[in-house]
Design a protein around this nucleic acid. Structure first.
Lengths: 198, 198
DNA sequence: AAACTAAACATACGGTCGTACGTATTTATT
DNA sequence: AATAAATACGTACGACCGTATGTTTAGTTT
């Protein structure tokens, strides 16, 4: 096989895996990574249960692949658009706005993927929990990194607080509180220094 | 039957129900209300699966009884001790301290019962979700009620913020961040007016 | 052309689940 | 003493679960 080409069998498998993962992320955002099952996914997608098992092997591997898929979708929807902004307050504001969009509009029908699954796995040691924790820490560290560009602020504590407010807003949105996004915005504004012109 | 007496059959059932619920609350704080099952509880307690089914009927009824049991334990551990304090900042501080104790020490081995279950049921309409939502709203309204005794504060927004921080601290504690309680305390202090003497 | 690999499927196994039904057993009512 | 009610248990049923095994098909390598 020459350098730039691909193995068609692996390509086919990767495509199938992606199809399954994309749907499984939606399922897991509502029913949790626990609620996933080979049979359910197979029925939803009209393929065989054994075929899905071939692609992922074990349920834990499926959960890990779904977590990874959610990570990529999250990065695409929240991180990448904000990366255009200059570091500091601008990028931070963009991250928060994109995050509220992400939680509100049903990119995932069950709301924030991490908020739905971390509380379930925080007491269950294993690679799935590790993946969720890594994602959570990376997100908070990203917030803290932007906050360090802003003077007069304790970056770690403020990052903790912003993350807490966003997570609470996600649940409030799930419960039908349409004003939750605005409440979160006003709450976050109080945590940051007065908005400077420009 | 005279007035003050009880039906011994109902008494016996109530005792059995309480035994099952007390253990089921622990299970549900770790594995969620979804993770409950008649068989699992029966094996844990050394009684028959059918006996538990007799006491609760359906799984949903079991979940509702467990939610109600958790509500009582929560009230006993957090609300009642704080009720001794005078309304306002004192009682609010007491509530927060008791809550942090409640989340840290394993009253429930899985941490805060509501934080573990609300994110799972927020997308599943039904009486279980309704119970969890009612508890959540009552807790936030309780915080807001105390905050209204404090001048210069938007009670609703601050209650939202305090609840958000406590919930985030609960998860951080579950993930091994032993400093989370202190972080939460410092965060909450910044939300309140300067501490006055006495 | 032959050997090999990955994907997809059909089938089967033991296990747990929620629920239903029949039957003692204990307690209360009549 | 006879009837009724609530608890407790044993058993059974269909459904789904995760996993294992063997087979067929598509694509690659030698």
């Amino acid at each position: 096989m020459s350098e730039g080409e691909q193995d068609g069998r692996l390509l086919r498998g990767a495509r199938s895996r992606q199809t399954v993962v994309r749907h499984a992320v939606d399922v897991a955002s509502v029913d949790g990574l626990d609620g996933l099952s080979f049979g359910r996914l197979a029925a939803d997608l009209g393929i065989s249960k054994a075929g899905i098992q071939t692609l992922f092997g074990t349920k834990e591997n499926l959960q890990l692949a779904v977590g990874e898929g959610a990570r990529e979708l999250f990065a695409e929807a929240v991180l990448r658009p904000a990366a255009n902004q200059p570091p500091g307050l601008s990028r931070l504001t963009a991250l928060i706005e994109r995050w509220l969009d992400y939680a509100g509009k049903p990119l995932f029908p069950g709301g924030c993927f991490w908020a739905a699954n971390l509380p379930v796995f925080d007491s269950k040691p294993g690679p799935v929990r590790d993946l969720l924790v890594r994602q959570q820490q990376a997100w908070r560290e990203l917030l803290a990194g932007e906050l360090r560009h802003i003077a007069e602020i304790d970056a770690e504590i403020t990052a903790f607080q912003i993350d807490a407010v966003l997570t609470a807003a996600n649940i409030a949105l799930r419960l039908g509180d349409h004003a939750a996004a605005d409440t979160a915005r006003r709450t976050v504004e109080r945590l940051l220094p007065e908005r400077t012109a420009g």
